[in-house]
Write a protein that binds this DNA or RNA. Structure first.
Lengths: 349, 349
DNA sequence: AGATTATTTTTAAACGTTAATTCAAACGCT
DNA sequence: AGCGTTTGAATTAACGTTTAAAAATAATCT
């Protein structure tokens, strides 16, 4: 039923070209050890037979796979369809960067709770590993340490952390939190609130919060500011702002006029909650997010947010990892974060 | 600097366990040909050495890779950060289904315009291929035919299509378009509009449009309905509805009271455009989408839409492909689409 | 011509598995 | 004891490459 002609090997080509198999291998790898004429002949025949080198054999012999494994850590609370859009963007840019560098990409989703099997390099399926995850790295810190001790090559997405083994590429969350808060201060806002975890469980969020705090402190605005915890979902943002508004009623301080959210998803929940009140965004209250996910341009009003350069991030992760694989010296990299001004902050454009 | 102890091989274990190397292989593969006691001993030693079988050697010997390649076709117009969220959901479920079946997943983004290299199976890197893309399959129909003729194992996401070679798994777009239109008709809407391509370039959209048409026709509502082309982006939806509203002013027929969008992204653009008018959704005009992307629950009002079961889809794609790989007979599969009722349709819940 | 050197090709040894085949021992039976 | 049968483990070929080393051939120089 299916044609299924036997897959051609280098021996077949050698036979047809009247040379030895090793010459075929050399010719196909453009080795200078084989002269032009035979090289052309071999390559032509290979093309005619639609020959492709067997990657398993090649990898086995070369003891490298030209493959990178991407381990995506999800928050176990999120369901299948709620993967953080930011990761998707990263996935896209990592894929492209890998392809450009001649590497294939193996993708694996890992649940933080699972006993994740990072055995890709152990089993020679990948030359190195990219760890990409939001949130609580402490759970698997010991695992990462194990990777390190095994001599596995890996790069971690996130902030450099002395307590954390391995090299990392990340975006400067402190500066991002600082910059966007400064932006709001410059627009004349005075009573701030931050929504998003400030605890240790989410290092990114904590850094953003610290940047936020720093900006407020330097303008003597920190005293009166509010903070409410929320994980990175729309619902959490919705709930958090609800609680804050209720508290504000019974509170002397009154309502904030600017809300800094630790993620766009949270900000979307905040916008939805505020829409059910008499408060107008941005006139009565400014709202800003973080991540610049695809839909943030299309909320009402369009969300002012902080962008992490995912394209650069992917390229950096891949190039750093490839350097590590070839045992070059590698260093942590902290990318700057950029404020994207839209309408939810009330800036006049 | 790095410990870098030599990677253990099955010979090392054999030596330590005092058995032959082949016995080690058998023991680790739980072959009944080796007795319980030696098996345990071998497995214990393997664990202690943190031994992992070399996949390249294993694959080479077994002539299969236990790896599936996922080729994601993107619309070349979309930029990195705008990957269709639907694909992300699919990616997640495909990854999980692969893992559950003991397969690894190799991911590759392909630009429709590129000369895509589907040589994963040729080079024994993957046992089969999943083709996942929205939109115009005609461009690469010849390529797919080539896959078929080479005896490559692959499954295509999309509607079964006699003109299209290979087996497919898809969601019933006709039924989805029909069902959601019926839902609106049942709610008493009478003047319909469809936004989304009705042409051949987007087979999914066309099928949805045909379902829409069929539902209207059977209630004698088709005559007065409108249609406007739009690709699957928020902006396209925004522009399309703007044009339609302008036309409606000069038109006797007047405004529609129900808008069926070919995707959620389009519907989001429509919602944004309507928010700038005096028209209230859903009171004056109902809007429904298609895909049930993550944010559609959080638009204002929350979007009524059609859900494709991505979890099932991923499982089906993977299981179908695995069947094909083991040369079992496989058939096209058309999954039912489900209407998700929220607020934008005006249903009283 | 004979000796060197440069070029091209072949031979053969890995790479680390799996699995068919072979071998050896132990057991049950007449 | 002798003979088949079962069981457990060892030998030994693959699998399709790459590459070091050897060998053959051609080119260059006394």
């Amino acid at each position: 039923m299916v044609p299924m002609k036997e897959k051609a090997t280098s021996f077949d080509i050698a036979h047809l070209a009247g040379v030895s198999q090793s010459t075929v291998s050399r010719a196909l790898n453009n080795s200078p050890l084989v002269n032009q004429e035979t090289r052309d002949r071999v390559q032509r025949i290979a093309r005619e037979l639609n020959y492709k080198v067997d990657k398993n054999a090649s990898n086995l012999r070369k003891q490298k796979s030209s493959t990178i494994a991407l381990l995506l850590f999800e928050d176990p609370t999120s369901d299948d369809s709620m993967i953080n859009p930011f990761f998707l963007a990263m996935l896209g840019s990592i894929t492209r960067a890998c392809a450009a560098a001649g590497y294939d990409l193996l993708v694996s989703f890992q649940n933080l709770e699972d006993d994740w099997h990072a055995e890709y390099e152990d089993s020679n399926k990948a030359d190195g590993i990219i760890l990409l995850g939001y949130g609580d790295y402490t759970d698997y810190r010991s695992k990462v340490a194990q990777l390190e001790s095994q001599g596995t090559h890996f790069v971690r997405w996130g902030a450099p952390d002395a307590a954390h083994p391995g090299v990392s590429v990340g975006c400067d969350n402190f500066q991002g939190g600082y910059s966007i808060t400064e932006h709001l201060i410059a627009l004349g806002r005075t009573r701030f609130a931050f929504i998003g975890d400030s605890g240790n469980e989410a290092p990114e969020f904590m850094a953003r919060f610290q940047g936020y705090t720093e900006a407020l402190t330097s303008h003597n605005l920190y005293e009166s500011s509010l903070q409410s915890d929320a994980v990175s979902t729309e619902e959490a943002g919705f709930d958090a702002i609800q609680g804050m508004l209720n508290d504000a009623k019974t509170n002397e301080a009154g309502l904030p006029d600017a809300i800094v959210c630790a993620s766009d998803l949270i900000a979307m929940g905040v916008l939805r909650a505020l829409r059910q009140t008499a408060l107008k965004v941005p006139d009565d209250i400014a709202v800003v997010g973080y991540d610049n996910i695809a839909v943030s341009a299309f909320t009402t009003p369009a969300l002012t947010t902080v962008q992490q350069n995912t394209k650069l991030a992917g390229e950096l992760l891949v190039s750093t990892l490839i350097k590590a694989i070839s045992n070059e010296k590698v260093e942590d990299f902290l990318m700057p974060a950029e404020v994207i001004i839209r309408h939810s902050c009330g800036a006049k454009t």
